[in-house]
């Protein structure tokens, strides 16, 4: 039974379905929640799903983490580019959330609103 779960195809299917479900959990939160922090959180969950999908679908079962010595055979390592990309993306996402949160705090001070549904100063 354990062998069944260890085949690359099965792991691939688990990763794809799992990250897809996580993505839709985030999308669901984005569309149904009202508190601004929960909106940001849902966006963060969606992003995590994309990262998991990327790293998960490109990892080789028998490969090792990309930390090498001079003479190493390069084919036994995991692809390092996805790791570098996701590292960049995580930091950027965090910066965006910090900024968004500071907008929200300042807006709350002026108007007392945290509900995104009621943000309609400019309705005509």
């Amino acid at each position: 039974m354990f062998e069944f779960f260890n085949s690359p195809e099965v792991i691939n299917i688990i990763v794809i379905i799992g990250s897809m479900l996580l993505f839709f959990v985030g999308l669901f939160g984005l569309l149904t929640q009202k508190h601004i922090i929960k909106i940001f959180m849902s966006i963060a969950i969606m992003e995590t799903a994309v990262y998991l999908f990327f790293i998960g679908s490109l990892f080789k079962l028998d490969a090792i983490a990309p930390i090498m010595k001079v003479a190493d055979d390069t084919s036994k390592f995991n692809d390092p580019i996805p790791h570098a990309m996701i590292l960049t993306a995580i930091v950027i996402a965090m910066a965006v959330f910090a900024l968004g949160v500071s907008f929200a705090i300042e807006y709350y001070k002026l108007s007392g609103k945290t509900n995104i549904d009621t943000m309609n100063e400019m309705r005509h």
Binding site: I92, G100, F103, Y107, I116, M122
Partner: peptide, 26 residues
């Protein structure tokens, strides 16, 4: 307050847009 509201809306839409972009890149 209207400028901040504009900023928040811009930021949320931008963050959502960047998820889809990075998904495409992935």
């Amino acid at each position: 307050s209207s400028a901040l509201e504009a900023g928040i809306k811009y930021l949320i839409t931008g963050a959502v847009a960047s998820i889809f972009l990075i998904f495409a890149i992935v």
